[in-house]
Amino acid sequence: MSSLSRLLKSKKCVSNYGQQIRVFSAQASPNGNDVEMDDEEFRVLNLRASNQKQLARREFKKPEVMPPRSLKMATDQDWTAVWPGPRSFHPASVPLPIRQGFTVKGAAPPSKYANAELMKIPNFLHLTPPAIKQQCEAIKKFCTPWPKGLETEEKWKRLFPVDVVSTDYCQALPTIRNPDARRVTITLKLSELKFDDHAKDKFLRLVGDRYDSETDILTIVADRCPLRKQNYDYAMYLLTACYHESFITEPWEESKSEADMENYKYERNKSKLSVEQILNWGNADSSDKREASTGYIESLENLVNGGENEYSLNKYKEEVIKMIGLRQ
């Protein structure tokens, strides 16, 4: 402080402005000089001088940065041109005062600038309704009209009962091929095919667990060939072959005995004879033969095929009593 005032005094002598002190020139003179200028005091050896005397670093000048371009955007601009595809959020390109995240309780969420929260979340700025509309318009020319006569689902399900499903993959790998793309699945409601009893039985045996009895849907998956086309052809071949095969009766099928049957059937069983024998007891007239009632047949088949339980047993009992004509 004292050195400064000394300096000012000496300056005052030089200038002839009287009271006025020229502040600027005083500031401009380098501070190191005052030691030499003052002869009256001893010079001080400053041991730390070497530390303090740092080279004046050249100031790094930041280049001029443009203001965020969102400020320049017109209010009626075409947003789809600004944000045409999926992209991480960028505050300078989005002219919306968005906020996200929190700092302290009760404070407003941080603004969009330098906001990592906004960059982390996926945004859908490229999928605005006008953008979707534009894109749909653009690819409309590749679409064919929906065929006439197939307006309802019921109609097209009936006319085109076979569904073929395959999958295309888009992936970030050096190879553009995905082995799973070869897989072809065809599904079909079995009620769409026409069978007789034998054929249906044989067909179901042929397809095995590819048939889901609950939904009545047959599913054939083909993936044994390297190409999708080949797999598709193979699946269609399987379907055709199984269908036609099921109508052929092989000679050995005749030798199927009652024990090989998968279902109890009243018609072909010995119990039919027994029941009819009991019903026609003492009736020699062959023209007036009594047969079992349909209710009885149903309850019997239900009992054997569905297993014994209270309901089926009771039902059977009722039917037997009814048929024989006993009084309860």
């Binding site: 009936r158 569904d163 395959s166 295309d168």
Partner: peptide, 12 residues
């Protein structure tokens, strides 16, 4: 990724 469903023609 993409499920392409093509309905193939088995006309009644």
């Amino acid at each position: 990724v993409r499920l392409i469903k093509t309905t193939s023609a088995v006309t009644q």
